[in-house]
Amino acid sequence: MKTRSTKVTLGLYTFGIVWGFVIVAPVFWLALLSLKTPLDAFAVPPKLFFEPTLDAYFAVFGDSKFLAAIANSFIISVGSVVLSLLIAIPAAYGLRNMRGPLRYNSMLAILLIRMVPGMVYLLPFFVLYKYLNLLDTHIGLIIVHLIFNVPLIIWMLAPIWASIPKDLSEASRIDGATPLQILLLVDLPLVKGGILASSILAFIFSWNEFLFALILTRRTVVTLPVAIVNFLAYEGTEWGKISAASMFIIVPAMVFGFLVRRYMIAGLSSGAIKG
């Protein structure tokens, strides 16, 4: 490999730093906003130094509707991840043993499901759910999220699975393992990094998902992103509460991502590396 010239390296770093600011700036703004009093929030020019207050947080966490939204989001995200794994793991295991056009077309079909804009699914699901009485239920939203999470997990796991040498499953067959034992004792421990990484991406998707949560729920199963919108109330927009609640949505995703970043990188680039 040719060593990069200092100029190029400098350019790349500069770009990286600037881009980093572009991404972090709104979050930083939001974080500051959540600590300001309503008066400071609208000061012109914006104040960088002010007396921080946790009033907005107390307000948000004192709001029983918001607490219910946390519970709802958590139930739906975890439920969707668990159910997605139950479907996607056997699917990826099956795809491992496929070859040629069958595998290619199956993978493509799965990807296409994920590629279709959510709006397309919205109306049919709304009508269907109305008849099935699934509107405004946890399971209803969990099922909709499967459309997005199952393909995501399959697509992340399939290449990792394909990189496990076939000899291993053959050796375990001779050693006396049943297909289920091969899956549980040999394959799953080897793809656990990928499972963890894809679960977290799926969790974050469900946690942040807004469109379906807005349309397919009413009052009972309001999730966090929808709850935030509800702070845009008749009596005026509560910027403090919105920013505090937003911070609360961002933080778990960031913490998760940070804890498992090693697996995330391995999972996301799994097609490129050989296990």
């Binding site: 040498p165 000899d167 291993l168 053959e170 050796a171 375990s172 001779i174 050693d175 006396g176 393992a177 034992q181 004792l185 040999v186 421990p189 080897l190 296990g275």
Partner: peptide, 27 residues
């Protein structure tokens, strides 16, 4: 019968003892 593969096909997530004992564990 038992088979030894060209690649050895050792289970990477198991220790040597667990690898050797795997067929017995299955039995």
């Amino acid at each position: 019968l038992a088979m030894v593969f060209q690649s050895y096909a050792l289970y990477p997530h198991m220790t040597v003892a667990e690898n050797i004992g795997f067929p017995l564990r299955l039995a």
